[in-house]
Write a protein that binds this DNA or RNA. Structure first.
Length: 244
DNA sequence: GCCAACGTTGGC
DNA sequence: GCCAACGTTGGC
């Protein structure tokens, strides 16, 4: 499934309201994720094969588990497909213009079905900025900026058999998947193509620079990924420059 | 449309 | 817990 392969925001999102409190008792769904949570740390390179000790949780023998030092990142990049593609009879298209067109210019980022991506969404906090990335299209790249306006809560589409992202293995008593609400902020003064970002990344890898470790290149398939503020600022500044 | 790079699943 | 088979992502 997967429409845009991993993400998709749906229209009804905006219902906003605080009505749903979301069982946020934090523990609710972490139990199953198992893999990859080590990610959050950033400091070191992506250990891929062996998951290092979870940095913040288990290892400490300390008495009470310290509250996971969650907010490690405050900038993100989220991918979605801006071009029509039919999956299970449903068009999964959802580009930045589609977000902008929703009521309140706000939508829920549902459909993420990858634990690592989900865990990053759980780390998101209100007010965090995220790039809207266009994937699987003619010209992939960063189209604009949005803001997290509602923190992680249960993604209802996992229980909807008609939804492209239905997950029969997830039970309402213990939901696997979460989503956040994001609100359109602005479209960049110029679209920043993946190819351009890649040039900077290669350059920075060789001689140092902000994009040296950008997740877009070091973890290519992750649909929700963190950016350091240096990465975020560097990319934003590109809109004021000529493309290279 | 191809296919590389990964993530997931399930047998053993 | 290993790992082969399979499925998905997403650039090209």
């Amino acid at each position: 499934m997967a429409s845009k392969r991993t993400t998709r925001a749906s229209t009804r999102a905006t219902k906003s309201s605080k009505d749903d409190i979301t069982p946020s008792d934090d523990h609710h769904d972490d139990d199953d994720d198992d893999n990859n949570r080590s990610e959050a740390v950033e400091v070191k390179k992506p250990v891929r094969g062996k998951r290092t000790a979870p940095t913040s949780d288990g290892s400490e023998k300390k008495a009470k588990a310290e509250p996971p030092s969650r907010p490690l990142y405050s900038h993100w990049l989220m991918k979605s497909e801006p071009e029509s593609r039919i999956e299970n009879g449903i068009d999964v298209k959802f580009g930045i213009e589609d977000l902008k067109a929703l009521p309140g210019q706000t939508g829920c980022w549902d459909g993420v079905r990858n634990y690592q991506a989900r865990n990053f969404m759980k780390d998101m906090r209100e007010g965090h900025q995220a790039f809207f990335y266009h994937s699987n299209c003619k010209e992939p790249g960063i189209a604009g900026v949005m803001e997290v306006v509602k923190e992680a809560y249960v993604d209802h589409t996992q229980f909807d058999k008609k939804d492209v992202h239905f997950d029969g293995s997830s039970k309402p008593e213990n939901p696997k998947w979460s989503m956040v609400d994001v609100q359109y902020r602005r479209t960049l003064r110029r679209f920043i193509p993946l190819a351009e970002l890649k040039k900077h990344h290669l350059q920075h890898s060789a001689k140092g620079g902000a994009l040296k470790n950008m997740a877009l290149f070091t973890r290519a398939r992750l649909s929700v990924q963190p950016l350091t503020s240096e990465e975020f600022d560097f990319v934003l500044d590109l809109e004021n420059k000529e493309s290279i």
